[in-house]
């Protein structure tokens, strides 16, 4: 019995690793559906709406990718993953791309054998506490009980932060944002820590968001972005340039409103190259010329997606900050389409 379990595990590893070696772009085209790993539910980034349709900033990346590759933004199979299961899901080939507010780190890129294709949200780790706790800085949290998602970089940052400041804490590991909310709202933990954007998203779902405050300290750099398996560079290029197409579209003023008009041809050669009326960029990627046009039409350019899902006019209410275009003093910068 034990032996058969062992063999089963080997078989699983053997078979799944076999999937990983094949060309993902061809697989996705043959399947007619994109398997996208996403959060189990983080409003604004990835969560099913009342009709069961996945909505959010990370979800939009997958929709744009499906539109570019398959011509249908709805041809996406969303696979909810937790902080712990996401990498195994990607490494085993269960998903083609992981867009789940995942931090780009050295070990994940190099040792875990993934490729981060870019950054769709520049974030940092923050703390949320109830206003009634009377805490105004994370350094006052000595001895506090803190809810933390396991298997994340935030878990490591938290340990480093408290060690550096020589104060103690009691970690309460949770698997998903929902569990964290339950414990936090019941007072089983004093503070909840995760990416500041995630905290804003969680707070937006509370009955009385104004009773919670985000502490001023941002204790880490968290560049969040989609990632693919290492070694399949053709697929990596497709995902990378789809993301860049969204960013470049905002910079160049291509919006979902004027994209039809612009695709008749303009005097800006870069817009023409992105929209496929000039050059053969799509062909180089192994796609058709209109790939980027479809990606942008799927939900709009980077700025539109931001405002629609997590911007200041949504319940999440995040300012552009670091995520503004480089021309606006932010960090979002797409290399030239040439």
């Amino acid at each position: 019995m034990k032996k058969s379990v062992f063999v089963g595990a080997l078989a699983l590893a053997g078979l799944s690793a076999g999937v990983a070696a094949a060309g993902t772009l061809d697989d996705v085209k043959a399947r007619g559906k994109l398997n996208c790993g996403t959060n189990t539910g983080l409003v604004g980034f990835a969560a099913p709406d009342a009709n069961g349709e996945w909505k959010g900033f990370d979800v939009a990346v997958c929709r744009a990718l499906a539109a570019a590759v398959l011509g249908d933004a709805m041809a996406v199979e969303f696979v909810p993953t937790t902080g712990k299961t996401r990498f195994t899901a990607l490494a085993s080939g269960e998903i083609d791309v992981l867009a789940r507010n995942t931090t780009w780190t050295f070990t994940r890129d190099v040792d875990l054998k993934f490729d981060f294709v870019g950054v769709n949200y520049y974030d940092g780790q923050g703390f949320m506490v109830p206003k009634s706790l009377g805490v105004s800085s994370a350094k006052e949290l000595d001895g506090a009980t803190i809810c933390i998602q396991t298997g994340t970089t935030t878990e490591l940052n938290l340990a480093d932060f408290f060690r550096k400041n020589n104060i103690s804490y009691e970690p309460v590991p949770v698997e998903t944002d929902n569990e964290a909310q339950q414990q936090y709202l019941a007072g089983a933990c004093d503070a909840y820590t995760t990416d500041a954007s995630g905290l804003a998203a969680v707070r937006a779902t509370f009955e009385n968001p104004q009773d919670q405050i985000l502490l001023p300290e941002i204790i880490s750099k968290e560049p969040l972005g989609p990632l693919v398996r290492h070694g399949d560079n053709e697929w990596g290029d497709v995902v990378r340039w789809t993301l860049f197409a969204l960013v470049a579209a905002e910079e160049l003023g291509i919006t979902s409103a004027n994209i039809e008009e612009l695709s008749n041809g303009t005097d800006n050669p870069e817009i023409n190259r992105i929209l496929g009326t000039e050059g053969s960029l799509g062909e180089m990627l192994g796609l058709d010329p209109l790939w980027a046009k479809r990606a942008i039409s799927a939900g709009g350019n980077y700025g539109e997606l931001f405002e629609k899902n997590i911007g200041v006019n949504t319940p999440i209410g995040l300012a552009r900050g670091l995520n503004a275009q480089w021309t606006e003093g932010g960090l979002q910068y797409a290399p030239p389409f040439r």
Binding site: F87, G151, V174
Partner: peptide
């Protein structure tokens, strides 16, 4: 969230090191 063997070795350690097998 009880940190047993599954939570540490086969949970966080697996996740941080990427050594599933």
């Amino acid at each position: 969230g009880y940190m047993d063997l599954t939570g540490t070795l086969m949970g966080i350690t697996l996740n941080q090191s990427g050594r599933e097998l």
